[in-house]
Design a protein around this nucleic acid. Structure first.
Lengths: 341, 341
DNA sequence: TTGTAGGCGTTATCAA
DNA sequence: TTGATAACGCCTACAA
């Protein structure tokens, strides 16, 4: 007990044990929920814990258990998307929420990409700072992923890696199916000249969404050649949409690979006097907050970021417990129909 | 130690020392940059470290140094603003960036408010999981702040606490000055009937911005009674703006306490056929990404979230080093003039 | 400058 | 069911 003026060092197991009238070993067992403890001893220890405000020293515990009771969330994005994109905040929130019932902590690693940084990160993880990792891999990130794949650290990726042969577990939304739904919806609403503002080719989500768009058009027997690339930013999407309109003045349908880009496309279309959805039907992807607030509001495919985070946590926990979690997961998506198509 | 050709367990100091032909103590000194090491010994140890891929076991180190080399970032928000608001992502990015040059890690604590959770958090911090904490205190959060103030954990708040008498260090932007600048700008542009969409009264930023707005009007000898409250969400702001327009049809200037809310107000004004800036001059607060992308783009006061994060880190590091960091800081703001006023 | 030895707080092993 | 006792890997007086 601290008598407000005395030494303020945290109570240790020794003091708890002494107060409870048992040995350290018994106190430890009682605290860690072991079964080989008499009810009397357990009660005494619990009382002593309450009285002293004892908390186990995590370093000491970790030293002997070889676990840290924490997991790392790795976000290898350096650019400004980190601020802009609600995706990361949603994932982070999902992870911490999913972990709230456990007593695992989240250690955050935000870093630049590149081989050096990758090695540092993996070194950190191997160094025993975390029991496992969730990697939010939006970009290609070969270095981090490669190094991780070559290690024995339990890790789950959010967003599939490019190289499907790597021994890695991941969870992703069915980007191709979402894009396909979106495009089919455009066609169902009567669009016949359908373009797309795609994401950059070094992101699997971008590639998969492009694939889905192509598939829907192929099935309808329509050409899939009205493609422009952007970088998932509003500015990039605005410029790309301008190019597309110049190249394809007859466009009557547009699938844009993210809501943020779709909002920018909306502005460009308006600036060109093209009404949405009357002249051009428009569908986005993500269904983040933003989608409901544009005018017209966006029809869009759902990207369940929070759910992906929860699943990733589940899988990682299973891995850590040795009870599975080695199977990658593709979450379904659906289309939310609003005013833009 | 498993034999599939390799040694499974991470190399320890003992092996490094043996390989370098020195004692554990010398190896430790060499690794930790101590000066009492001969160049030869140091070189040998460094070579051994490289060869073995040695990384100090953080738990063992922490056990004896009584430091964890990690700091906690506490975000006691439970509601959806966490996803929506780029403020948190920006702060997080700022913190990790500022910490990149050190070898401190970030432990993320996202939690509900309330006394129980507050005690748990503080217990966690006192338990020796982190050397200090940065608390992003947007809301009132009396419980967390009170408990923290009563502890001896080094902590820096981002956003001033309501109770100024608490022995806490914090960094904040000069919200009142920003609001004042904004309102003065409205007046300079000719507005005479100036209202405000304020934030909720349990947030110091909201109160300070309201204060600044009042001050500017008082100085100009104009009434400051056209106030509606919202909760920093777009929907809340839209409803509030509707109320304000109903109450004050003659409004010709509007200060909105955040860009996100200002964007919503913009829509409402447009829906009522009020042109911005011709009929109503509008100024927001924050200067986040969004501000440049509304139409017209928003004139707004800068909220330097990243800079606040960096300063908070600096202050906390100083505290940990015992070299100051006990003085709270108010960062200046400025007005960014765009099309809305 | 280097090495010896002790201890940080906990859990795990083994007798009792 | 309990209690000695030995690790866990590292740092740091202290002595050489």
């Amino acid at each position: 007990m601290v008598s407000d003026g005395t030494v303020r060092h945290a109570p240790t197991l020794v003091e708890v044990a002494r107060l409870a009238g048992v040995s350290r070993a018994t106190a430890s067992r009682a605290i860690n929920g072991g079964d080989r403890v008499s009810p009397a001893a357990r009660a005494a220890v619990e009382a002593a814990v309450r009285e002293t405000g004892y908390r186990p020293n995590p370093a000491a515990r970790s030293l002997v258990t070889r676990r840290t009771d924490s997991i790392a969330v790795v976000i290898p994005e350096s650019d400004s998307r980190l601020f802009t994109d609600p995706f990361f905040a949603t994932v982070l929130h999902g992870v911490t929420t999913a972990l709230a019932s456990t007593d695992l902590q989240v250690v955050l690693l935000i870093g630049q990409r590149g081989v050096d940084r990758a090695r540092r990160m993996v070194g950190y993880l191997r160094g025993g700072h975390a029991d496992g990792a969730i990697v939010v891999s939006h970009h290609r990130m070969d270095s981090v992923v490669d190094v991780l794949a070559g290690s024995d650290i339990p890790v789950v990726l959010i967003g599939r890696p490019f190289d499907a042969t790597l021994p890695l577990t991941w969870v992703d939304v069915d980007n191709a199916a979402g894009a396909r739904l979106a495009t089919e919806h455009l066609l169902a609403r009567g669009a016949r000249r359908v373009g797309t503002v795609a994401g950059p080719p070094d992101m699997s989500a971008a590639e998969d969404r492009l694939t889905g768009w192509r598939a829907a058009l192929a099935e309808a027997g329509l050409p899939a050649d009205a493609v422009v690339r952007a970088d998932f930013t509003a500015d990039g999407a605005a410029a790309a949409t301008e190019r597309l309109l110049a190249e394809r003045p007859g466009l009557d349908g547009l699938f844009v690979a993210s809501d943020q880009m779709a909002a920018a496309a909306l502005d460009v279309l308006a600036a060109h006097g093209r009404r949405v959805p009357d002249d051009v039907r428009l569908v986005g992807f993500d269904n983040m907050d933003l989608a409901a607030r544009t005018r017209p509001p966006l029809t869009t495919a759902v990207n369940p970021a929070g759910e992906m985070a929860r699943r990733a946590v589940q899988m990682l926990l299973a891995r850590l417990a040795g009870t599975g979690g080695t199977e990658s997961v593709v979450l379904p998506t659906e289309l939310v129909v609003r005013g833009s198509a």
